[in-house]
Structures are given as structure tokens and as C-alpha cells.
Amino acid sequence: MGSFIATRLVRLVATLLVVSFLTFLLVNLLPGDAINALIPIEAQQDQEYVAQVRAEWGLDDPMLVRYGKWLGDAVRGDLGDSIVTSRAVSSEIAHRIPVTGELMIVTVIFSVLLAVPLGVMSAYREGSRLDQIISGGAQFALSVPGFVAGLLFIYVFAMKLGWFPATGWTRISNSISGNLMTVTLPALSLSVIEVAVYTRVVRSDLVTTLKEDYILSARSKGLKDGFILFRHALRPSSLTLITVVGLNIGLLLGGTVVVEFLFALPGLGKRLLDAIFQRDFMMVQGITVFVAMVYVVVNTLVDFVYLVVDPRIRKAD
């Protein structure tokens, strides 16, 4: 078990190093020299000024030296300064995390709460009318992207019914009810695909589990179906669900960019988009590395959760 954790941690660090280097490479190698973002094209006639700025930003050093410097700073929490606003990238990220974080957490909780009963009902009555409706609905929901769902929700619940604000964000520190009002529609839009994915996972996993001998054996003990479903069958399926939730964080992070753009939420995704349009390469690099790190760390955590929940793996390693 100790060696299992050690291997995972080594792999985590290695992946983070490679991911950060790749992002660095990506941002620095691709066309569109950073100098264009630092100095307006018209002002680039002044060779001396250009050279001075290049030296100031360290653009003339060899690639590896620059990466080393950047990494050294990054480890200490310094991802550089935005070349547009001159504010520290890390503090901008920290300022935006609560919005994106809340959005993702609410989405995952809501989706799991909805998907587990749906998947269980569907698997328990496999092949029935109910199963066909739930499975068909999930297949359809899987095809509705966040921006289509979001626009529909804005049109119906904000414009026609006026129940929720169409755009904007109220921080939870300002007003809890206001915060709930602003998080509902974005989270619902993100949930459409997530619910579909989780329902399908729970269903297909449970259908297999329910055919296991130990389910039959539990029935022959005279236990109630509900008890068997939730205490015996759902436990192995919950492992698969945890993995899929972890793997889906990547999809969800992409989804938050779209939804934050649509609902004008001051989150990490919206900041990334703004940085992209402003060609603020320090900000793009910082956010990309940060997001990739979150993704990698979450997936390592999922491995650890697995370790805690499944006694067989605990034994094997």
C-alpha cells in the first residue's frame, strides 16, 4: 500500500513537470512572438527599446533557462505578472477560483444526486418501459452541449419566466440566496451532459452487478430489494462512478469556460478567454498550467479514494 502511494506521487510530480514544460513550450514556440503583445507594432521601429524590453522579460535567454526560472518561481506560487493588467497571475487565479470551484462542485453534486436514482431505477427494471425512457433520455441529453442547454434555460427561466437572472454572479460572501440564484442556471446547463454520462455509467455497471451470484445469494437470504440495491449492488458501482467523475473533470473544466462565457461569470474560464483575446500569454500560460494541475491532482486523488473504498486493491499492493 505504501509503495502504491509512493508510485502514484512520483508519477504525479513527473506528469506535472512534463505538463508545465509542454505548456511553456507551447506558449513560447508558437507563432506570434510575445514581443508583439508587449509593444505595439508601430513602436517596434525603436530597436533599442525593443532590445531593452526583451532583456527585461528575459526573452533572449535560452528556452531551458527561461523554463527553469519560470518553474522556480511557479513552485513558490509566482506564475509571473499579466502583461495587460500587470497584476500577479497567481492572485488573479486565486480571486477567480471560488466562482469556478463552486460551479463545478454544485454541478457534480446535483448531477450525482439525479443520476444515481435514475441509473438505479433503469438497471433494476432493465428492459422495461421506464428503462427505455431513461436510457433514451440519457442518450439524447448526451448530445446537448452546455451552450445550447444554457441558452434554452436563459430563454425560458430568465427571459420568459423571470425566475433567475440571465447573467452575472453574486459572491456567496455578499448574499447566500443571491449566490444560489446566480449559480442555478449555469450549474443546470453543465449538468445536462454530466447527468447523462453518470446515469449511463451507473446503469451499465449495475446491470452487470445485479447478475452477480452474490446478489442472488442476498435475495435468497430474504433481504429487501431496496436494501440489496443500495447496500450490496451500488457499492461496487460507486467505485466506477468515482472514477468517471474524476475523468470527467476535464470535460467539466472545458464546460465551465463555455458556461462562464455565456452567463458572464467572473470565473477562471472567463479570465482565460479574456486573456486569449488580449493575447496575454503570461495569463494564458498560468491558467492552462493551473487547470492541467487541478486535473492531474484530482485524478490522483481518485486513485487514492479507490484505495480506501476497495479492500481488494488495498490487499493487492
Binding site: 506528469t15 512534463v18 505538463v19 505548456t23 507551447l26 506558449v27 508558437l30 473533470i249 476535464g250 470535460l251 473544466l253 472545458g254 464546460g255 469556460v257 463555455v258 482565460l272 478567454l273 486569449i276 494564458v284 492552462t288 487547470v291 492541467a292 486535473y295 492531474v296
Partner: peptide, 12 residues
């Protein structure tokens, strides 16, 4: 695959 798809795509 360690990069979230859309974010990587946006950056590139």
C-alpha cells in the same frame, strides 16, 4: 490526455 481537451484546444 492530462490536459483538459477544450482548454488545450483554446490555448493552441
Amino acid at each position: 490526455l492530462a490536459f483538459p481537451g477544450l482548454v488545450l484546444l483554446l490555448t493552441v
